[in-house]
Design a protein around this nucleic acid. Structure first.
Lengths: 204, 204
DNA sequence: CATAAAATCGGACACTTGTCCAAATTTTAT
DNA sequence: ATAAAATTTGGACAAGTGTCCGATTTTATG
């Protein structure tokens, strides 16, 4: 029989799993550093371990395999990017403010997090070949489509297929901007936002 | 001194290099098979050699290294895709015919060559990390931007930045269609063309 | 403090990778 | 027919990969 109350045991177990989750997140953040820099194809577990100041074995102590670790990274990316967009949108109402908020949020993300998005596009590309990544990609894209639909409603331009179609268009411009930012001529926030606003004005 | 005329020597040399080029193309076509199926990250030179019914050493006899071989594949893809689009456009004049021709050509390519485009998107993503691929990606995208500009002129809607902006938009929809075709619910030619036409009507 | 559990290390492992080369074969030219 | 050149082979090589595990250290618990 146990010498402590069941609720206390539960509390302990929760603390344990929460601590474990935090450690996983911390490892994933280090992993994202490496993946952002080197790309999916060129990042080894040793690269990740080095950046996390951890031994190789630890990675397998916290993650089943390489794929699970990378999926955890994408999960973190999703949470950050989506909630950022949703926050930007939630503060705005009315057509022009909504368009401005979205354009500004996207432009800011290009300037500040271009190499993080580069990693996302890399993983999304991998999902075209490796089914293991598809559910996560689908989840993230569904959330992005939801953001577009939400913006469409706020601007009074909600239509069937607006979410998917709008996502594809915005993503096309966003990706191209990211590519130019990293491998071409970097542009400032205003220029990026203006271009994105031009698209959103036509879309919504 | 030589026993044959210089022009004959020249002709021989040309035949040699042409034969060599054809062999390189043939190897590259086999390589594309493997790359289309497995993706950049998961395709080894042994995978390629197996599909080309060639020994491993042959690949290095014809190509300096793995990167050069893959670049040759992209070069072949470029020639085929771009000239296909240019042909489709050259036969059309007037706003609606041009829009229809472009929408149809793109939709046909989604239905027939989705996995080839998947490879292109994979390589384009690699270029974000590996500078060796960037010149080729730039070249191909410049050609695609040129196609969009050409279409814009034919529809009388040429504007500054129309090429880049239009390319980004069309690419966003095209890529999303390709992704759905391969990992989601495949659609028929008409449905794809209708969606693309809807975009082109607004763009031009 | 003692003990059990969790965390961490360091290295072994089997396998794959791109590259390279000496030798053998085939093709071409004289 | 013969020499030279081009092509092809098969395997060796070192480096790198993901995975796994026994031993050790650290942490939490009674």
């Amino acid at each position: 029989m146990s010498t402590v109350a069941p609720d206390k045991l539960q509390a302990r177990a929760d603390r344990k799993t929460r601590k474990r989750q935090e450690k996983k997140d911390q490892i994933a953040r280090s992993a994202m550093q490496a993946l952002q820099e080197l790309g999916y194809a060129n990042t080894s577990l040793r690269d990740i371990a080095a950046r996390a100041d951890l031994s190789l074995g630890m990675l397998h102590y916290y993650f089943e395999d390489r794929t699970q670790l990378i999926l955890h990274c994408v999960s973190l990316y999703k949470a950050a990017f989506i909630s950022g967009l949703e926050d930007a949108l939630s503060d705005a109402s009315g057509r022009e403010p909504v368009i401005n908020a979205l354009a500004n949020a996207l432009a800011t993300s290009i300037v500040e997090d271009a190499s993080t998005h580069r990693l996302w596009y890399d993983i999304r590309g991998q999902a075209l070949f490796d089914p293991a990544f598809r559910p996560m990609v689908r989840e993230l894209e569904a959330a992005l489509i939801g953001v577009v639909e939400s913006a469409a409603e706020k601007t009074g331009s909600a239509r069937p297929d607006m979410g998917e179609f709008g996502y594809a268009l915005i993503d096309g411009v966003f990706r191209y901007q990211m590519q130019n930012q990293l491998t071409g001529t970097p542009r400032d926030h205003q220029s990026l936002a203006t271009e994105m606003r031009a698209l959103l004005e036509k879309l919504f």
